Simulated assay, not measured.
Amino acid sequence: MKNISILGATGSVGTQTLDVLKKEREKFKLIAISGNKNYEKLIAIIEDFNPKYVAVSDKSTYKKVKAYCVEQNKKSEVLEGMKGLIQISTLNEVDIVVTSIVGMIGLIPTLEAIKAGKDIALANKETLVTGGQLVMSEAKKNNVNILPVDSEHSAIFQCLQGNDINSIDKILLTASGGPFRGKKKEDLFNIKPEEAIKHPNWNMGRKISIDSSTLINKGLEVIEAHWLFNIDYKNIQVLIHPESVIHSMVEYKDGSVIAQLSAADMRLPIQYALNYPSRENNLIEKLDFYKIKSLTFKKPDFVTFRGLNLAYEAGKQGGIMPTILNAANELAVELFLQEKISYLKIIDIIEECMNKFENTNQINLHAILETEKDVKRFIKHKYNV
């Protein structure tokens, strides 16, 4: 039996991880979870799984959860803030830490989990976007497996099994194109948050859905792929694939292309990561190839969705620039969801910050965290928020 800790258990990926654990209770034990403000979901997980530890980031929610556990005589120990996140990431009894928490907040506990020798089921792309050099170095030093949970990176990982990574010619990273596929810039002036979060194929959280609509999400995945698979940016190609049946492909030096296909359901990459290297009975609906009418591919519109270009640029520059990109995007998306800026302003703010802040190749945790603060402070001051 493998013991699991989930960072971000109340979010989209966290919830689907719990679905996998429910179907395979004989193989997994949920030791610890974290959440932020979703009190109801946290209580439901406590009732269903009885985890030993519950870490809560939001102070008022922490107090409510702790009070509930005392009143109901629950044995879960309730922890608070970053200290709690680190504690549940480094528990001696935990085998795998699922990092599904959204944003740069996931970087510190992920690094601590790696240093503690825990395998990582990685669904927090910001961890590699901002700290890829640190994370992969620590993983190698501590002999830790980084098992990708993003559907695209899981697909690449699966396509690599049994093959020499040095024989890769190209990674083909697929993207649905989001809700605004085929639109031009003039069509996007008055987009509202409720329109941008309506992803055509996937059920995701609000922030990731916005990122998908701007193609920034795909740009972050390009940077993530670079670090996960040690592939040069010129060998990572994004393809718009509206059907979301092929989740990504690997092209080898001999011209062979291996693809991973499945239904658009995050439970498959989660299940694969948790059970790796084994494959278990399916939890998702299997593909019916008689019903698949076509599989289409297009080049991304780098003009309308220029955020993808900015991500490539940030990745190629390296150093602290991906952190600048990510921090600007995190806050800009938050402001858009609060309707304090327009949809197109998200990318404008990212570009502005990439031009304003100087890059440096002196990368350490302190530099990453300070850069995040500086970028967000600049945006808040300029836009009076």
Rank of each mutant, 00 (worst) to 15 (best):
G178A: 03
I197N: 04
K185D: 09
S151M: 09
L172M: 12
S167V: 01
K198N: 15
R206E: 14
E194S: 12
G162E: 11
S176W: 10
G205K: 08
E194Y: 13
I156S: 01
P148G: 09
P148D: 07
H199F: 04
L172F: 05
S176M: 06
K184D: 12
G182D: 09
N163H: 15
E152K: 11
A175M: 07
P148Q: 10
G178I: 07
P200S: 08
K184N: 14
Q161D: 14
V149L: 05
G162D: 10
Q158S: 11
Q158C: 05
L173P: 05
D187R: 06
K183H: 14
S154N: 15
S176D: 11
V149M: 06
I197L: 01
G178T: 07
K198G: 00
T174R: 01
N190D: 13
I168S: 10
W202P: 00
N163G: 09
I191W: 02
E186T: 07
H153E: 03
E186H: 12
A155L: 06
E186V: 11
H199A: 04
E195I: 01
L188N: 03
P200Q: 03
D150H: 10
P179L: 08
Q158I: 02
D169M: 10
K183I: 06
G162F: 09
V149S: 02
E186Y: 10
Q158E: 15
L172W: 10
